[in-house]
Nucleic acid binder design. Sequence first.
DNA 1: ATTTAGCACTCGATCGATGTGAGTGCTAAT
DNA 2: ATTAGCACTCACATCGATCGAGTGCTAAAT
Lengths: 345, 345
Amino acid sequence: MAVLTDRQKLILGAVVEDYVFSAEPVGSRTLSKHERIRYSAATIRNEMADLEEMGYLAQPHTSAGRVPSQRGYRFYVDHLMMQTEIDAQTVQRLREVFQQRIDAVERMIQQTAVVVSQLTSYTSIVSGPRRNSERIRQVQIISLSPGSAVAIVVTNAGTVHDRPIRLPDDMSAQELERLVNLLNSKLAGSPLAYMKSTLYQEIATDMAGVLEHYEGALGVLDELLRVAEEKKEPVFVGGAINVLAQPEFHDVEKARPLLALLEQVDALYSVLPDEEGGISVRIGEENAVPALQDCTVIAATYSVGGQPVGRIGVLGPTRMNYARVMQILDYAAGALTDTLQRRLG
Amino acid sequence: MAVLTDRQKLILGAVVEDYVFSAEPVGSRTLSKHERIRYSAATIRNEMADLEEMGYLAQPHTSAGRVPSQRGYRFYVDHLMMQTEIDAQTVQRLREVFQQRIDAVERMIQQTAVVVSQLTSYTSIVSGPRRNSERIRQVQIISLSPGSAVAIVVTNAGTVHDRPIRLPDDMSAQELERLVNLLNSKLAGSPLAYMKSTLYQEIATDMAGVLEHYEGALGVLDELLRVAEEKKEPVFVGGAINVLAQPEFHDVEKARPLLALLEQVDALYSVLPDEEGGISVRIGEENAVPALQDCTVIAATYSVGGQPVGRIGVLGPTRMNYARVMQILDYAAGALTDTLQRRLG
DNA sequence: ATTTAGCACTCGATCGATGTGAGTGCTAAT
DNA sequence: ATTAGCACTCACATCGATCGAGTGCTAAAT
């Protein structure tokens, strides 16, 4: 693969930045008026023709300016993009989210999604935090009426999972208490995820000795274990309508598949790339999801105790302000990591 | 106000139904081919001109067919609409939601929103269930680390509210237990909403006698009370993208304010009309919210123990299939009422 | 007195011709 | 190697003509 000359890099960078700003194909004349570019339009045309031949630029039609191709964006992100400082006002907006100390973690994550979407004018997707490092702190079963109760599992991180369950009709309060005590002695300190796989047998055996309603209690245990099973990490979306603000999605038929995707919470796990560490950028067809062929997804990881537990991402058109989004995500992921560390660590 | 002749009613009804189906202005010729209408196009034209003069029909432009006005829809809904039987397949789809017995109530409500939106092809908004009839069953404070804990309030209906709180650093386990016992003895059985207003003073006084960390415990009480305060009834939206499928919103600029509204969860309370009982229909400008001037919102109430606790609504263009939506909402609200009654009652 | 056939008229939508202009590629001069 | 010049391309906007669905009105038919 041919290496780009400095001048070609200069022009490619200028095309990307101009196009990101204007959303219009960039012509040679426009570029020649650029301060940093001191070549004539004709020279630029020659270079642009070469860049197109190499696949970095594309032409919507013969008599139009050039547009960066997926490859052009990739090169820009990898080699040309200048990382400037994040501005104070943006930092301030982000900080406000993390300074409300007493709020629940999920709410904070959700607000992060909203603020990031507002700051970037794109759509934000935030996942997590993943719960598999959390350990069971306490199990409670609170009976509501004969036969029905609610099971509550509290983890050491302070997250509370609850689920309605059924009890054997004739189980006494004393026996329920014994059951809960047994469950607590067995489950406390073990990770949520282990509840099902390893502890079931052990607890079942122990229950046989202590409880009259062995069968019924087994059912309770079954239902309790579902709490852990069901607990997928949540995904929050902020600013889904922002896609409509982008000229590339002014056509409803273009926007619909995207919005449909964003409404399907389950599908969003596969949108956020699950690379380890750092900020990942998926441009156009680098995204696995077909609906995102004309989109870029940038995502950063946030962690607790060195373990990545979630991702915060931005979804927008490939014509995206890469530098700014990366700045914001970098900051937000760092702040999330710090805040969660302080809160859960 | 002049009363409509039978023939005018027939024609008005036919215009509404044809327009709801086709989304195109309805001409006299089209109607004259209708089976039920045995008049010539000319007669129909005369009647349509009269109906327009009376404000039931409107003409997009001189050489176009007629379109129902807001008033036309209103008359149709009030006097002309035929209530047919709901079809078996639709009933089946709805039943599936309510037959999963063991699921949490909120999840069931959310699924109701999704299924109703799918069945109607419009957007569904479901609120509730309102919690103010629920009473506190039990309060728990589970300490996580010195100084931090999570407060849990369980109601008699089995809903669980939790909130991270701070504890005085030097509060002992014994004292925390005393605090929780005190809170339980005072709060158990009282409605969530009363927690703040009436019980605060009483509990505060009692605490002074029993607890060493009076100040700290007071703080805990404060934080606990926020659980009740924050607990607005939830609102779920299903099928927000369905608005894009409607021809009236094929233009992004038309669709955007609507989708923006649907993304603002807080704003949705004011979308669902809060009339008591029955099914309410708000057509066009009958909606208070400005963004809904071209929309119809139909909503039904569901109840627990005779008390309305939530609403299930459908939002679509004024050109809506009123009969079908009302059928579905009627059924869904009834099923929700029954299911919740069995579950919570 | 109603209803309907007939007809001129309206007006949005569609289509084609035309012009415009931004932008290109190529060639020749610098 | 760079650039000025120029012919060429092509999307897009504009204009006019045409088309046709639909109307309102009048006069004939029932």
